[in-house]
Design a protein around this nucleic acid. Structure first.
Lengths: 231, 231
DNA sequence: GTCTATAGCCCGATAGAC
DNA sequence: GTCTATCGGGCTATAGAC
């Protein structure tokens, strides 16, 4: 899920970097599982090494420290994280744009629950390693995203709702299926069988239905095209 | 926030238990802060003792192990956690019942963010200490709660939506302000000033508006009493 | 590039003086 | 009831043989 870190000794060895790349990927994959299961501090390099099938000193060979490995993973998550929201534009039709956004986020929860959980654990434990990220223009970026939703309200495309809290609603309701997947499974199925594809589909359509109607938007594929909306 | 654990030596000392009770409360309060900040495994007894202003051996005097102290706190949270949802009854008017539920959960996030975060961290890291709780009738309890919402649908009190996913939506959207409070603060205010009372009010009214309208329910205090609803 | 051995630290838990 | 001292163990990180 990431490019190779600082290359070294390009000349002495054959060095197409294939061994390095393979090991780095292996370590990152194992680390994602472990960090998602316990959070940064409670995860030991020993466990990561065991999952990767390597002696733990090898982790230190590719990543100078536990923190460096963690930041490598966390930074990659952040890069992906806000991409979806950036695609919302003032000229969009909110019916299709919001519905697509909800389905995309649910799909993200289904496919990359580890990334979602690593991010959530980081935020919930104080976001110590996100301080720079949040202080470098995050507030203004968020305001710009709110402005897009606000422009839909002004154009009469949706009912007047607080854009910031609507965004929080979109985030929380969709990420719930990754972050609280264990609870959702226990509630829905009781047993250990994980959430099925149809569970995720049902989640996406239910959320779309409620949130779009809640914003006074007629769903794109809905049956009743003439549902009224208050100014 | 809890009763005293196993009492001992009731006879030899004066023993109104006032010293014990005070120390236990002090330790639990400090432990809640620490567990909420880092999760169970990453929290050390040393940190708890430091925050409580005691030598760490004293924690072991009142609680035999770190796990016992943690379970004491976690169990108390669980006791409170589902009380609000249990108050929803088939004969209720969903407009007032759901609105009240949303406001109550937001208020809970505002007043007890530590409890919410401890619970969330526990679930997200696999719920190792919740296994008994989830396996002892949790599934059937959840189904009963869904049945209440389903009865509202059948009575024509609200639009047909999947009750389970509606409950997930209610949980996730309200707990978001406790669990992701740090992110919400960064997004709304940029600076370090925490979420204000008016932020929580705005959250509650926005969520109520969207979710109730999304379920085809006319808000209790709303202006238009005749808003139509699909069967 | 790989792996063993170990230094140096912090942890949970306990013993025992006061 | 309180607190110091300490044991045994797991941790991050590094040194150095192969």
């Amino acid at each position: 899920m990431v490019s190779t870190p600082t290359p070294d000794k390009r000349d002495t060895v054959k060095a197409h970097g294939t061994i390095r790349a393979r090991n780095v990927q292996n370590i990152i994959g194992a680390a994602e599982i472990e960090f998602a299961q316990r959070g940064y501090k409670a995860t030991s390099i020993q466990k990561i090494a065991a999952r990767a099938g390597l002696p733990k000193a090898n982790i230190h060979y590719y990543f100078n420290s536990k923190l460096e490995l963690y930041l490598e993973i966390l930074t990659n998550i952040l890069r992906l994280w806000d991409a979806a929201l950036n695609e919302l534009k003032p000229e969009d039709d909110p019916a299709t744009a919001l519905s697509r956004y909800i389905h995309a986020k649910i799909e993200f929860s289904r496919r990359y629950p580890l990334a979602s959980r690593i991010f959530a654990l980081e935020v919930m434990t104080g976001g110590e390693h996100l301080r720079d990220y949040y202080q470098q223009g995050y507030h203004t970026w968020f305001q710009e995203r709110c402005a897009v939703l606000q422009s839909w309200v002004k154009q009469g495309k949706m009912a007047p709702v607080d854009p910031a809290h609507l965004i929080f609603l979109l985030w929380s309701s969709t990420q719930h299926y990754a972050d609280f997947g264990y609870q959702a499974t226990a509630a829905l199925h009781g047993d250990k069988q994980p959430l099925s594809d149809s569970d995720y589909q049902q989640a996406a359509t239910t959320l779309s239905t409620i949130i779009l109607r809640g914003c006074g938007i007629t769903p794109p594929d809905s049956a009743s095209p003439g549902h009224a909306m208050k100014p």
